[in-house]
């Protein structure tokens, strides 16, 4: 054993490139346990290199029609194929205009890596700091999962179960991500605090609609990088449905967020600093969106 496993070559595996979705599912039905799915490969290849994962098969799902593409239906929502690149999403006009928190998150990413990295990969890696997740959480994303046995839908907030832990069986794959049409008159925003690494130490996505009318007001907040799993704080929505001065509601929402998110200490930042950032930035982002015209 050597410190840090500083390998430059990959361990042995068999590279498999099915041509159709059916072939993918059949292969996974048979070899799912021993296979790793690869689209952009950004994480998989790195993990293999670092010997953090191993696989007999690497299944390349790039280029499979059903898994790609981006489709927007007015008043319904946006469907993104799991293998669509983050670059395509960053350049999407619909996302820029309607899902600005997601657009802002994508803009913070390595501008070359996103030509390979996919939305499916970003979600399935399930690291605390994955930037697309908090925006997708506030947009109430739903995932379409498929296997030979059939299809199922799962909300993103239920899909990520822990750090690098997801609700996906070895025979299943993430087919697409659906985000409903955002509420009317909504605005969204993404805040990312970079400290001394590539990853944010606190990432916040916020969505607000109808700020002045409590009966219709919608406020959603989700947090990444702060705790082992990205967190949507659903209680916030209820708080802002109440009739009370905004200052008071923001105060209340902030304390609920702090109770829910439970910040961590890791090599990038301390729990204490994260707690502080969540405290002030939650207020800041809420004010910005609640008081914008």
């Amino acid at each position: 054993m050597s410190f840090g496993a500083p390998y430059l070559t990959l361990p042995s595996f068999k590279y498999v490139k099915p041509k159709t979705l059916r072939e993918v599912l059949e292969f996974l039905a048979e070899h799912g346990e021993d296979a790793k799915i690869m689209a952009g490969g950004v994480a998989v290849i790195d993990f293999l290199k670092e010997r953090l994962t191993e696989a007999d098969y690497i299944v390349d799902i790039k280029g499979i029609e059903e898994l790609g593409g981006i489709k927007y239906e007015e008043n319904k929502g946006l469907t993104m194929g799991s293998t669509i690149t983050l670059y395509s999403l960053r350049e999407s006009r619909i996302i820029r205009e309607k899902y600005s928190a997601l657009h802002e998150a994508l803009k913070t990413l390595d501008p070359i890596l996103i030509h390979r990295a996919t939305i499916g990969g970003n979600i399935c890696e399930a690291f605390p700091w994955m930037d697309t997740v908090p925006p997708l959480l506030v947009f109430d994303a739903e995932l379409n999962i498929i296997s030979l046995k059939g299809k199922r839908k799962v909300k993103l907030k239920d899909f990520i179960k822990g750090t690098a832990e997801i609700d996906l069986n070895p025979d299943e794959i993430l087919e697409s991500i659906f985000v409903p049409e955002p509420p009317v008159n909504s605005k969204s925003k993404y805040v990312k605090v970079l400290a001394k690494s590539e990853f944010g130490v606190v990432n916040i996505a916020c969505l607000v609609s109808n700020p002045v009318d409590p009966s219709k007001r919608i406020v959603k907040l989700a947090y990444g990088a702060a705790s082992p799993t990205p967190t949507l704080v659903p209680q916030v929505e209820e708080i802002f449905r109440r009739e009370a001065p905004l200052n008071k509601l923001i105060e209340e929402a902030t304390s609920v967020v702090l109770e829910t998110v439970s910040p961590m200490t890791d090599i990038h930042a301390s729990e204490e600093y994260r707690r502080y950032l969540i405290d002030v930035l939650t207020r800041k982002i809420l004010f910005e969106l609640l008081t914008a015209d």
Binding site: K189, N247, I250, E251, D279, V280, R283, K284, F287, E288, T291, A292, D293
Partner: peptide, 14 residues
């Protein structure tokens, strides 16, 4: 003081 200012701000330029 900043936290106070934060709660006083109504309009912010993004």
């Amino acid at each position: 003081e900043l936290k106070r200012k934060l709660m006083e701000i109504r309009e912010l330029k993004v």
